[in-house]
Amino acid sequence: MREIEYREAIKEAIIEEMDSDRRVFLIGEEIGVYGGSFKVYRGLLDRYGPERVINTPIAENTIAGAAIGAALTGYRPVAEIMAIDFTTLAMDQIVNHAAKIHFLSGGNVNVPLVIRTQGGVGKGVAAQHSQSLEAWFYHVPGLKVVMPSTPYDAKGLLKTAIRDDGPVIFIEHKKLYSVKGGVPEEEYTIPFGKAEVKREGNDITIFAYSNMIIKSLEAAEELSRHGISCEIVDPRTLVPLDINLLVDSVKKTGRLIVVSEACSRGSVASDISARVTERAFEYLKAPVKIVAGLNTPIPYNSTLERASIPQVNDIIEAAKKIL
């Protein structure tokens, strides 16, 4: 299979969906000539023109609102919010509008909208450009939350997101854009709510998503050299969540590590821990271990930055502790 970058995979999904559905259009900041701040959209303005690649002023709440308004009136917009940190400026439209309208209409009206954004640590861009805010969206009923870890997943899930009746928050990781992975030439989609076992194992289940899949795979490789066999479960979509696959894995291994780049307080990780404990308590041979970011704003200094989020060694140490 050919290998392409995560950003290329996203772009391919966009192109395929825009080519097959006139109702799909792009809206966001710096998505025209500039091609998106991570260059995902390079060349798309030339391909589709300014009517379908709408380059906006810096106005996140109105970008989100415009996408909602267009979604209500027959289109399927893909809005880009340049960084998840800036979704804070669009929270009214995302939380009070996108997430509510289908419900408030008594189920009569859909909001087929994708908000693409990126988050995460690892580029030295400090506290206002490095956050992992997925828990905010995970918490709000009415939103779907997608966090792909590979180019293959990113493409298949984005195509599903665009075809979904939404709203979908599609969260990419800034460290993943240049990562290459196998993506077939032929068309495919990945359904929401289907986790994937990224590595099979018997001793410990590791639940991780987005960039933490990469670190977990490295940790599992290292642990295997010490005779410890880890099973890595990637939910791919946090909402809807494939809890059954995770619970089945925990029933098999009897141990769970939840890895999260986001800080631990009020996190998806702590919710996962609670949910698995509820469902599989009697199968657990050790307490669930959460390996998460520290409860701190992300520092600029590279040593401090690294210390703020889980590293491969933290996962290895956690595994050794619960065995």
Binding site: I54, A66, A70, T73, Q93
Partner: peptide
């Protein structure tokens, strides 16, 4: 903000 999308 919805007006911008409906207007589009």
């Amino acid at each position: 903000p919805l007006s911008v999308g409906a207007g589009l």
